[in-house]
Structures are given as structure tokens and as C-alpha cells.
Simulated assay, not measured.
Amino acid sequence: MQSAQQASVPQSDADRLRARAVWLYYAEGCTQSEIAGQLGINRVMVVRLLADARRRNEVRITIAAPLGDLAGMERALETRYGIGRVILAPFADPAGDPTKVIAAAAGNFISSGMKSGMTVGVGWGRTLYNALPFITGATLQDFRVVSLLGGIAAARRFNPAEFAWQFAELFQGEGFLIPAPAVVDSPETKHALLERCGLAAIFEMAGQLDMALVSCGGISQITTSYRTGHITESDRRSLVETGAVGDVLYNFIDAQGRPVEHEVNARAISVQLDQLRRTPERVLISGGREKHVALRAAILTLSPTVLISDEQSAKALLAEG
């Protein structure tokens, strides 16, 4: 359904507007807010123009770098960790950031994996957000997207609501968001929100997913913007002292993938790990040097059916005893 702004633009002008938005975003590297200012439209319309362009296959992003033979490592990881399918992106720099190459591999997998009638739960983070440009959208029927974690007040690009909304837009689906912070001040507040503010219904939907797309986070240092304001440095040190090596949807876990006994876990507004493990298709999308320990722990706790990572992270996982 078109917005009032879209409906008022003739088709030829709409095509031109979409093309300009695409050029500014992909060729000139403008942010969505900058594009909105230049074109005299709101940011919501920019998101829709970009999503529409991807659905029409007007935007295609390719990776020109030569692909190494990663099949052996993929099979080795599948065997060692009992994963149904491993997809590795080539990445030669052990000290570099593989976010973009993992995102590209994830975008290709997601593009071919979404079908009408599906209910898909989504997490958040840099890798998932960076996968959006690599996803070829489509118009799907009866398609639902459920955010698996609360939001943040100081919203940046990695706000879970932002990713879930844009993901739903790509497939013309319905989006179901959690209208609460990712971490609240007490377990009592969490209980009240779940029982009296309608959040329980969304978590019930999360128990009926066909697929979950999630990432994991390390805890060696707080560098990612989505943690700001929720996990303090004091919290981080305390979590490390209890044995936490990272988190999946703010469920903090130790090196063996076991939830740690810490009050932050009791304050997180997110789907619990035991519920997530019951999802038929569990896709873990993550990698990077600072996440190697957390990634292994996430694999142990989630038993993912699909792992999408990078070459260097695979080497680290296989080097584990």
C-alpha cells in the first residue's frame, strides 16, 4: 500500500525519485537522513524507495574478490559442531573486520531462504544490519517478521526495531516489534511489562517461528553502539567475573554456552535461549577476532542449523581443542 506522498507522484517521477535515492545511497555513500534532506522527503520514504529498488532487482551488489576453496573448513565445522550447513565468506586478514563479507554471504542466503507463509524472528547488530543491501527482496504473502529483543532509546543504525522494520519492508511483510527497552531496571519491571503491557503476545509468536536470524556479541570490551546505555562498564566487569564470554540477544553465556548467573540476564527483554533452540531453523550469523570465543559459545548453546561466518573465524573455531 502506497503512502500519501508516494501516491501523489506520477509513475515516471516515482521511478526517477527512486533512482536518485539509490544513486545517493550506493554510489555517493549518503546516509538515509542525508538523502531525505536532499530529496525533500522523509526518511521513511527513503527506506521504502531503497527496499523497492532491491525488490525490483534494480540494485545488485557483487563481490569481485576471488573465492578460496573453503569447502573443507565448512565440512570440518559441520562435523565438529553438528551444524547442518556452514557458509564461510573468504577473508584473508586475521586482524581485519569481516563484517561486510559475512553480511554479503548472509544476504545471499536470506534472499533465497524467505518464502510466503513464514514467520521469521530477527536479532540485531552490525552484521545483520550490513546484510540489508545484499538481500534481494520480494513480495511475499503472509510473511511475518518478529523482533526478538527490545529496543534502545538512543537509536542508531543497530537498533533492533530498525533492522526488523527494514527487513519486513524488503518482503512486504508484517513487522512485530517489542515496544520496550532491551534491558530494564529490574526483574520486577520486566515481569510487569510481560504480564500487563501486551509483550507476552509477541513472545508467544516467537515460540512459533519457522526461522531465527541471530548474531552474537563479545564482552571483552564495549565498543558497539547498541550496548551504550544498557550495559555499563561495571556490569561488563561483573559479567566477566561470573564467567560470561558474550551474549545472544542479551542472554549472557559462558564459554560452554551456559547462561551465567547474573542479574542482567534477569532484566533483559528478549527471547530466552531455550525457546530459541526450539525454532526449526536457527541461523547464526557472526564472526570477527573479538567474537571467536563468544561465537563458539553461541554455537554450543544454540546448536544452529546454519552458521554463516568468515574464513578466519572458522580457523579459530577449528583450532579449539
Rank of each mutant, 00 (worst) to 15 (best):
A182M: 14
Y129I: 15
R236C: 12
Q166M: 07
D185N: 11
L39I: 01
L49M: 10
A255K: 14
Q5Y: 10
L209D: 02
L50M: 00
S238L: 12
Q38M: 09
R80C: 02
R157F: 10
S309N: 11
Q166C: 09
E241D: 15
A51I: 00
S270V: 00
S33F: 13
T127A: 08
S111M: 03
I299K: 06
P259R: 02
G29E: 01
A19N: 08
G246W: 05
R60P: 06
L307W: 01
C30L: 14
E195S: 15
Q38L: 09
E174Y: 05
D210C: 09
L128G: 07
R43W: 00
I269S: 06
K291W: 14
A206H: 14
D247Y: 07
A180N: 03
I269Q: 03
K315N: 12
E34P: 05
A316M: 06
I63Y: 12
G96A: 13
G218E: 11
N108I: 13
L170G: 01
A64D: 13
A182Y: 08
A89V: 14
A95Q: 14
N265I: 00
A104F: 12
R85G: 01
R55D: 04
A255S: 13
D185L: 10
T189K: 15
G288Y: 04
L295R: 00
G207E: 08
V145Y: 06
E58Y: 03
V146E: 00
R267A: 02
E281H: 07
D274P: 03
L300R: 06
T224G: 12
V146F: 06
A7C: 06
I202M: 15
L276P: 08
I222V: 11
T139F: 04
V47T: 15
P90Q: 09
V183F: 06
I152T: 15
V101G: 13
G321L: 10
R56Q: 12
M1D: 07
R296M: 08
L132V: 05
V306D: 04
G151Y: 04
L49A: 07
A297W: 03
E78P: 01
R289Y: 13
H292M: 09
E169C: 12
E58N: 09
A76S: 12
L199M: 04
L307H: 03
K291L: 14
A51W: 00
G40R: 02
P98R: 02
C216A: 11
R289P: 14
D235A: 04
R278T: 14
R289F: 14
K115R: 10
A7R: 10
A103L: 03
A19C: 04
